[in-house]
Write a protein that binds this DNA or RNA. Structure first.
Lengths: 218, 218
DNA sequence: GTCTATAGATAGATAGAC
DNA sequence: GTCTATCTATCTATAGAC
């Protein structure tokens, strides 16, 4: 997502065709590195993953990675931001698709669908994010904070309007509810197996537990 | 919990007083190392934590740690097992305290209380476990698997008897319910702040969401 | 039981050829 | 853009003094 400005502007005017092809190729290689790295960060953790392993999985030598990223930190930082963006975009897309007059409960339902879908469709990015975020050095975490804050702010607004509209019990603490909800959704990356059922089915079960509880009658 | 057998049996007969004092001191030092290590493993991750940092936080030099543990792996392995044991023991204790004739729903409720209490009372051990387990080498994970299996087996039994007794809706998939429930409880280590409310209050809110759902009336 | 000193391995990052 | 080669730092673990 972030492009290396210096290189991008270097030969911007001349040879538009060649440049476009090169930029596209660059994008492909960057993507290969990010995909390889997110798999490794998820499976072995950030610190245990070596640049040689990332390079190997991306089909190149360790030194070559530094043409595309200035450091190992820069790779994980981009993965953190991309992960939140995937989920946030999918949630917003589905909520906005409902239109401005939609019921708050319906908006909440599609937000859950969107979160789960974004999460599990880009599982390695989100799993890498969820598993590593809390253990990264503070300066790396800080760069991801604005996006995270914006995302939880969006949820807080959804939950508040739902409670005001009577779709959520008035006695529930919305902060706890948000943490509980997003947390339980995030945890699905640890156990959801795509072959054991679709994301849609999983989302239905979870919404059913969340809205109506596990007790009968309800 | 695990003691180094060789040293323990070495001078077992003579000087019972001195030996007992030495063994107790050894236990204290081991504990210091485990406490220091679990804090660091939680905050920085297993791979990023160095033996020098563990030793420093435990008030000794790096080389001295090897008198108590044969490797860094042995430290994390003991932390993994201890974490599950704390939670499992607390859950069993509370369930068994209810007696054999207790209602399945009541047993489930105290199991949730026990899990949360064991989890948050030994937060650094459980957080270290939850955060690092999935990224550890397979041989380390494998040693922790029997305890984990026993624990989820206990939960599966609790949930099954509750569903059979009509305390859980018949349409819910118990495997998903168990993963969802334990997952949402485990995630509390990421956000629960002891100063913002007691574990008991938190457990009440979570049980309320889980049993009755967030929708009103129910 | 704890110390100091260090062996041996491997990491992230850089330099310069092509 | 990717390669090879390598610098410098730092890690786990061990050895032997006390």
């Amino acid at each position: 997502m972030r492009e290396p400005e210096s290189r991008k502007t270097a030969k911007a005017v001349q040879e538009p065709n060649k440049r476009r092809k090169a930029a596209s190729q660059e994008h492909v290689t960057r993507r290969k590195i990010l995909d390889a790295a997110s798999d490794l960060f998820r499976d072995k953790g950030y610190a245990s993953t070596t640049l040689r392993q990332i390079a190997d999985a991306a089909g190149m030598q360790a030194g070559s990675v530094y043409y595309h990223f200035e450091s190992k930190d820069a790779i994980v930082s981009e993965i953190l931001d991309l992960g939140i963006t995937y989920v946030f975009d999918e949630v917003k897309r589905r909520v906005e698709k409902l239109g401005p007059g939609a019921e708050p409960k319906a908006r909440l339902e599609v937000a859950i669908d969107g979160h789960l879908s974004g999460l599990l469709s880009h599982e390695s990015f989100l799993s890498a994010n969820i598993r590593n975020y809390g253990q990264l050095p503070e300066d790396l975490r800080k760069k991801n904070v604005p996006l995270r804050r914006a995302y939880v702010g969006y949820w807080d607004a959804l939950l508040l309007e739902a409670q005001k509209a009577g779709a959520i019990r008035a006695d529930l603490d919305l902060k706890i509810l948000r943490l509980f909800t997003i947390g339980s959704l995030n945890w699905t990356v640890e156990w959801h197996k795509p072959d054991k059922g679709s994301i849609e089915e999983l989302s239905m079960q979870i919404k059913s537990i969340l809205f109506d509880g596990i007790s009968p009658v309800g």
